[in-house]
Design a protein around this nucleic acid. Structure first.
Lengths: 143, 143
DNA sequence: TATAATCCCGACTTTGAAAGTCGGGAATAA
DNA sequence: TTATTCCCGACTTTCAAAGTCGGGATTATA
């Protein structure tokens, strides 16, 4: 089970924007530098995030990116989904229903895991990550 | 976020053994056939599971594998760990402590996620999967 | 004692997606 | 007009998962 760096990059970058993008747009280069991400690669991620409405961009000199909506209304789950990093633990692809019982006795397990993770990440917003930088959200209300 | 088929294979195979290995050892070929897994590949997985004590093997004709201990004392987490599929969502590698605040504001998030998933998968044993083949363990007590 | 079944093992190849790169086009502030 | 920045598709590189292979060791059984 693996969380790729794409997902981590995306979330880190969004938190970065939450912190530094209050007054004016932030350019890719600045975020990339602060977060230690390849600028070209980060740009590709921003593309996806923008297309999902999580980012708003301004072109031209002094342009850059800002969050598409308030920090309290962007969840970690939103961000991961936008960059194609949401979890689907099931093999069958579909979150429910599986023809072969003998082979898919574990289907329910993976579907449950998927929901469990989704519930967790869907309950954490950028606001939490911004104001509580290091503290681990251990005792967060789980769905 | 991705669960590789290695993890799914391992769990499916263990459930298969729980069902068919009550009386006598089950050979790799039989499990592979039932679960639709490449026999050679499954054998490699069984190697790992045995080395972790989750399986017990009998060599020679009519030999095969059996569970290393009771179904109620083998969790999904055990199985995934044995085949190297346990989740560590943190980038830093260490479940806690991170030097760079600016870059690792999300560290706590991933550490929390790791614990959350671990708690879920650590609470489900092969016994549950065996007796409740298809039903999704949605409302399971989460750690 | 042979033979077939089975576990056992390391090393190898294949495959596919993540990670990262590149060159050029379009918009805009100064 | 120029520098800055977003925008885009296509491309290469990298790496681990997935799968294969050949041979050795053990044991029930005929």
């Amino acid at each position: 089970m693996r969380l790729t760096s794409r997902g981590r990059y995306a979330v880190s970058a969004m938190v970065d924007l939450a912190r530094h993008g209050a007054d004016e747009p932030v350019c890719v280069a600045a975020v990339a530098r602060r977060q230690g991400i390849s600028p070209a690669y980060l740009e590709r991620l921003f593309r996806q995030l923008r297309q999902q409405g999580l980012l708003h961009s301004t072109r031209g000199a002094r342009g850059g990116y800002r969050l598409g909506r308030g920090v309290a209304r962007i969840t970690v789950s939103d961000v991961l989904s936008a960059v194609g990093e949401s979890l689907d633990a099931t093999a069958c692809g579909s979150p429910d229903g599986c023809r072969d019982d003998e082979r898919c006795g574990t289907h329910g397990l993976w579907a449950g895991l998927t929901r469990h993770v989704e519930g967790y990440l869907g309950a954490i917003t950028l606001a939490e990550l911004d104001t509580q930088p290091v503290a681990a959200p251990t005792t967060l209300k789980s769905a």
